[in-house]
Design a protein around this nucleic acid. Structure first.
Length: 595
RNA sequence: GGUCCGAUAGCUCAACUGGAUAGAGCAUCAGCCUUCUAAGCUGACGGUUCGGGGUUCGAGUCCCUGUCGGAUCACCA
C-alpha cells in the first residue's frame, strides 16, 4: 500500500472531474507540524487549470476528496495549501502491511551490478580520521545500493608502490636496526609510519645542512643522501632488484597486517583488493595503444600526453619521458581491469576526497577517448575534507588524528559515561564490553555520516563523544528501550498479528506520526542512493527515534486495558525497532538489546 | 590569474530539489521519574539564510554581481 500514490491518483481524478483537465504532476509534500493533516497539496500551480484562486481551488478539491476518496477523512486549506488528513483505519492498515513484510527496508532485486571503491590508502603510514570518513561513507553507500536491489562489489586500490613507500623503506634500512612489529610490539602500519616520519625528519636536517653550504633548497632536496637512497630504491624496484623487492614485500606486509586490524575494528570489509603494483603495467600498455590509435601524442623527449583543451581542460602527462608511469596511468589500468574482472557491472563509484575532482574528470574523459562506453557510468563520489577545530590536519605538523587512537578513545569514553550512569550493573562482562564498543563506534560513525558527504565538516572531539541529542547513541538507546518493551510483551504472551488490532479506529496523534514516519522508509532509501548520501538515512533514523520517543512519553502501553490497542502499540514498537536496526545497519552501526 | 566548491541561530548541522511563520542538536534558562530504561520528554531564549540587484503568485534554493573562505590547475599521489 502506498498512501501517496493513492492520493495522487485521486487528486488527478478530482482535477479531471472538477476542471476537466489532465494533471501529470501532483505537488504533494508533508504537512507542517502546526497544521492538521499529513499530506499537503500545493494549489498555486493549479489556478491556471481551475480558473479560481488558490483557496477556492483547494477547497473544491478538498470537498471532492472528502466525499469520494477512500482514504481522506478531512481537509483544511491555509493560504493555497490543501492539508489532507488520512483515515486512522488507513494508518492502521499501513502498519499491518509493514508488519507483514519481514524484509521491510529491502527493495526487490533489480538485476543491476555495481562496483564501489573506497579507502585506497598509501602503504607508508597508518589510517587517519580522513580515512574514517572515506571508509564509513563508501561502505555505507555500498549498503545503500544493496538495499536498493543492486548487486555490489566493494573494492579498493592499494597504492603499494612509489616514492612514498620507498621513503619509509630507506629510513628503516638506514636507521631501523632491524626493528619489526614483533620486536617492538608496535602495530605494523604504525611502525612503517614511524619510519616515514623519520625520513622526513632526517631529510629536513640534511637539506638544512646543504643549504648552509650554499645549495638551493630544491636542489638540496634532491641531493640529500637519504633522498638519494629512496630514489635509488624506486629505480631498483622498477628493475625488480631482489633485495629491494624483499624489503618492500616485508614492510608492506607489516602495513597490511595493521590495516586489517583497523578495518576489522571499524567494521568495514572488501570483496576484492587491487594493488597498484599489479595494475600500472596494464595502464602503460593502454597508454601506448592510445598513442597508436592517435588518442594520445608523444613529445620529442618521449613523454606521452593527452590533449583535453577541446574539453575545457589542459594537457595532461600520462607517461614520463623516462617511460615510467604516473598516478593517472595506474588508474586507467585499474579501471579497465575491473570491468574485465566484472563484466556485468554497469558502473563504478570512486569514493575519493574532493581535492581529486580534477583528476577524475580527466580520468573519465580519457577512458571515453579510449572508447570505453562504461566510462560514462563512472562516478566520483567526492566528499569534503574533515577539519579540526585547530584547522586542517597536517601530517608535518603532527596534527593528524590517528584512526586507531580515535576509535580507542571513543570506546573508552563510551565506557566511562556508561559506567557513570550505572547501565551495566546487571550485565555480564562480555555484554558490557561489547556495549561500550557499540556505543563508541556508533557515536563516531553517526557523527561522521550525518553530514552531507559533499560538504566539508568540522570534527570536534568533544562534540563527537556526546551521547545525547542528534547522535548514534540516542538512536541506540531508543532501540534498547523498545527491546525492553518487547521482552515484557513476550513474557505476557501478547499476540501481535495484524488480526488482533485491525479493528482499531482512533489513533493518538503520536501514533499516527510514528506510522507516517516509518512508512517513509523506502522512499528515503531511494533518495539516499540517488544522492550517494548516508546522511539522508542518518537524518531519517533520527526522525524515527524522535517520533517514537514522543509516542513513548505520551502514550502508556502496558496500562492499556484494551487488548487490541495493547497489541497495536507493541506491533508499532516492534516495527520501529526493526526500522531503526535496519537503517542503522545501513550506516554500519549496531544497536544493542539493552543499554 | 583560470576552473570548481562553499558561506543558514553563539557552535555543529537540516530544510523533501521553487512552497506555508527557515527547523534540529549542543550551549543557556524553566518544568517532568511511585507508571514500559530520564543517554528520554515538554517549554523558553536564539535568524537581515555573507552584501547588492534580478526572475515570479512565491527564492535559503534559480540568474547576475561583489566580499570572504577552501580545493585544484606538477614528468606528485
Amino acid at each position: 500500500m502506498n498512501i501517496e500514490s493513492i492520493l495522487r491518483t485521486e487528486i488527478q481524478e478530482a482535477v479531471q472531474s472538477l476542471f476537466g483537465a489532465n494533471l501529470d504532476q501532483v505537488q504533494l509534500q508533508p504537512t507542517n507540524q502546526e497544521f492538521e493533516g499529513s499530506h499537503t497539496l500545493v494549489c498555486f500551480s493549479l489556478t491556471k487549470i481551475s480558473k479560481k484562486n488558490p483557496e477556492e481551488t483547494g477547497k473544491a478539491i478538498g470537498d471532492y476528496l472528502k466525499e469520494k476518496s477512500s482514504i481522506v477523512s478531512d481537509y483544511n486549506v491555509v493560504k493555497g495549501f490543501l492539508n489532507l488528513s488520512i483515515k486512522d483505519a488507513v494508518w492502521v492498515e499501513m502498519l499491518a502491511t509493514i508488519v507483514a513484510q519481514p524484509n521491510y527496508g529491502q527493495l526487490p532485486k533489480n538485476g543491476k551490478e555495481i562496483m564501489i571503491e573506497y579507502s585506497s590508502p598509501n602503504t607508508n603510514k597508518p589510517l587517519h580520521l580522513g580515512h574514517l570518513r572515506n571508509n564509513f561513507l563508501g561502505w555505507s553507500v555500498a549498503e545503500l545500493y544493496k538495499a536498493n536491489g543492486y548487486k555490489v562489489h566493494k573494492v579498493q586500490i592499494i597504492n603499494d608502490r612509489g616514492i612514498h613507500i620507498c621513503k619509509s623503506m630507506a629510513a628503516w634500512k638506514l636507521y631501523g636496526n632491524g626493528e619489526t612489529p614483533k620486536t617492538t610490539g608496535i602495530k605494523g602500519d604504525h611502525l612503517v609510519g614511524k619510519y616515514y616520519v623519520e625520513f622526513n625528519t632526517r631529510l629536513t636536517e640534511q637539506v638544512k645542512e646543504l643549504e648552509t653550504k650554499g645549495v638551493a633548497k630544491e636542489e638540496a632536496e634532491k641531493q640529500a643522501p637519504i633522498m638519494k637512497v629512496a630514489i635509488d630504491m624506486l629505480r631498483k624496484w622498477e628493475y625488480r632488484d631482489e633485495e629491494t623487492l624483499a624489503l618492500w614485500k616485508m614492510m608492506n606486509g607489516w602495513v597490511y597486517e595493521g590495516f586489517e586490524t583497523t578495518y576489522k575494528k571499524m567494521g568495514v570489509d572488501f570483496d576484492k583488493l587491487y594493488y597498484e603494483s599489479n595494475t600500472f603495467l596494464l595502464g602503460k600498455e593502454q597508454v601506448i595503444t592510445g598513442v597508436e590509435k592517435g588518442v594520445f601524442f608523444k613529445k620529442e623527449d618521449g613523454s606521452v600526453w593527452v590533449d583535453l583543451t577541446a574539453d575545457g581542460l589542459d594537457q595532461k602527462v600520462l607517461l614520463r619521458s623516462d617511460g615510467t608511469s604516473v598516478y593517472m596511468t595506474q588508474d586507467i589500468g585499474t579501471a579497465i581491469l575491473r570491468f574485465h574482472d566484472y563484466p556485468n557491472i554497469t558502473g563504478q563509484v570512486y569514493t575519493v576526497g574532493n581535492e581529486q575532482e580534477y583528476h577524475f574528470k580527466v580520468l573519465f574523459l580519457i577512458l571515453q577517448k579510449l572508447g570505453y562506453e562504461w566510462a560514462k557510468h563512472c562516478y566520483h563520489l567526492s566528499y569534503g575534507m574533515v577539519d579540526l577545530p585547530t584547522g586542517k590536519m597536517k601530517s608535518r605538523e603532527g596534527t593528524v588524528v590517528d584512526a586507531d587512537d580515535l576509535i580507542d578513545e571513543m570506546i573508552s569514553e563510551a565506557k566511562r559515561q556508561t559506567l557513570e550512569l550505572g547501565k551495566t550493573d546487571e550485565m555480564s562482562e562480555a555484554e558490557a564490553s561489547k556495549l561500550f564498543e557499540m556505543i563508541g563506534l556508533g557515536a563516531l560513525k553517526f557523527f561522521l555520516l550525518k553530514v552531507d558527504p559533499k560538504k566539508k565538516m568540522l570534527f570536534d572531539p568533544n562534540e563527537s563523544i556526546q551521547l545525547q541529542g542528534f547522535t548514534g547513541p540516542f538512536i541506540q538507546y531508543t532501540h534498547a528501550r523498545i527491546k525492553a518493551i518487547l521482552r515484557k510483551a513476550e513474557s505476557m504472551q501478547v499476540v501481535i498479528s495484524p488480526d488482533t488490532f485491525k479493528g482499531i479506529e482512533a489513533l493518538a496523534s503520536t501514533e499516527r506520526e510514528v506510522i507516517r514516519v516509518i512508512s517513509a522508509f523506502e522512499g528515503k532509501l531511494k533518495e539516499a542512493v540517488k544522492d550517494f548520501s548516508p546522511a539522508v538515512i542518518a537524518n531519517y533514523t533520527y526522525e524515527v527515534a524522535k517520533a517514537y520517543n514522543q509516542f513513548y512519553q505520551s502514550v502508556p502501553i502496558f496500562t492499556e486495558a484494551d487488548a487490541d490497542k495493547l497489541a497495536f502499540r507493541i506491533a508499532l514498537s516492534k516495527s520501529v525497532a526493526n526500522v531503526l536496526k535496519r537503517s542503522m545497519g545501513l550506516l554500519g552501526i549496531e544497536v544493542p538489546e539493552r543499554m
